[in-house]
Computed example of a mutant assay.
Amino acid sequence: MSENSDKRAQFLASLTKSQRERLSHIDFKLYFLGELRRADVVDRFGTGPAAATRDIALYREIAPENLELDSDKVYRPTPAFTPLFEHNPQRVLTALSKGYGEGSGELLGGEAHPMLRCETPSSLSLPRSSILAPVSRAIHRGRAVKLGYTSIDSGRTERELVPLALVDIGIRWHVRAFDRRHKQFRDFVLTRMEEPTVLEDSVVHRDETAECDVQWSRLIELELVPHPHHPRPEVVLMDYEFPEDGVLRVRVRAANAGYMLRRWSVDCSNDHSLRGIEYALWLRDPLALYGASNAQLAPGYRDPRSDREIKAL
């Protein structure tokens, strides 16, 4: 880092959190949309025009080479523009495609709008707020819930669960929870729950908490490489940020490993036998999945010591 960059970083660190948020938004608008108006700051943060003008002036003081005012009174990034902040790609794509954070409308029940023309797949399976709210409260406060649950194996039953975490597996959301009926940690699909009620007076014991969930606590390092039979390995290298040794290492919880590998379409067979361009990656050491409770959900995986099938949720 150059001396100038170091001083700039120190100055940014000395600002208040709210000041950094406003400057980051200015940086974002210039970097990803190529324009900035004073109204952008006013609308986003609810400040007055004078305060927005001060924020833009502060940004110009820190990085005068980053922007210029055109004839339409719109600030544009210069050819020498260098972002002041690191912008997380996932958050950037969410903001561009859904418009979250562009005002208070979405918080008040209004509709957020994309910043650009974007197309994202619709979620076909989302839980109702009346289901999600008590479950999320229970997770946050460390409480148990009572609810009706319909599973493929058992049909509808009454359950007492101690929910630990929400998990998004791409096609649906589920809850990792301790099931008091079976005395073990399991996954429960939110859309299959009915009338969850937080049990305020029910004591949650230590063996019902995340610290005792071995599958949740165990982290597995997956070594992913380009699929040996992919017709264009150079494209795979472009699609994924491989390190110099050509091995993409990803750490996941054992409780989620099978879900994630299926979501990523990783060939987990011993002999990379799955075919199709959807299998861009191969799990170099399938034995890394041994002992993961849902390993058999991973494409092509075969448990070397068991023929046990994973039970439907």
Score class of each variant (00 low, 15 high):
Asn270His: 10
Leu248Thr: 06
Asp307Gly: 08
Phe28Gly: 10
Glu208His: 04
Val236Gln: 06
Leu147Gly: 00
Leu222Cys: 01
Leu107Ala: 12
Glu65Ser: 14
Arg172Asp: 06
Ala177Arg: 04
His182Trp: 09
Val41Cys: 11
Leu224Pro: 01
Arg91Thr: 06
Gly103Tyr: 02
Arg176Asn: 01
Ser18Val: 04
Val235Trp: 12
Gly291Cys: 09
Arg91Gln: 11
Gly300Asp: 13
Ala95Ile: 05
Gly46Ile: 12
Pro304Gly: 05
Glu160Lys: 01
Leu164His: 08
Asp55Ala: 13
Glu102His: 04
Ala280Glu: 15
His272Gln: 13
Val135Arg: 01
Gly105Trp: 00
Tyr290His: 14
Arg218His: 07
Cys268Gly: 08
Leu93Val: 00
Pro83Lys: 05
Leu199Arg: 10
Pro79Arg: 08
Gly103Arg: 01
Gly142Ala: 05
Glu234Thr: 09
Ala210Asn: 02
Pro196Ile: 08
Val247Pro: 06
Ala51Glu: 13
Gly99Ala: 01
Asp40His: 13
Met115Thr: 03
Val42Gly: 01
Leu96Asp: 05
Ser71Glu: 15
Arg192Thr: 02
Ala112Trp: 06
Val135Ser: 02
Ser306Gln: 07
Ser125Thr: 11
Arg60Ala: 15
Ser130Arg: 14
His182Glu: 12
Val162Asp: 00
Arg141Thr: 13
Thr197Trp: 00
Arg76Leu: 12
Ala298Ile: 12
Arg305Glu: 14
Thr47Gly: 03
Thr78Cys: 08
Ala144Asp: 00
Val204Pro: 06
Leu283Cys: 14
Leu132Ile: 04
Asp213Lys: 02
Glu86Tyr: 04
Thr16Tyr: 02
Ser5Phe: 04
Leu69Asp: 13
Val266Pro: 02
Arg192Leu: 03
Asp201Met: 02
Leu58His: 09
Arg159His: 02
Val167Pro: 05
Asp213His: 02
Val41Gly: 09
Asp72Asn: 11
Trp173Leu: 13
Ser269Tyr: 07
Val135Tyr: 00
Ser151Tyr: 00
Pro299Ile: 15
Leu126Ile: 09
Pro233Gly: 07
Glu65Ala: 15
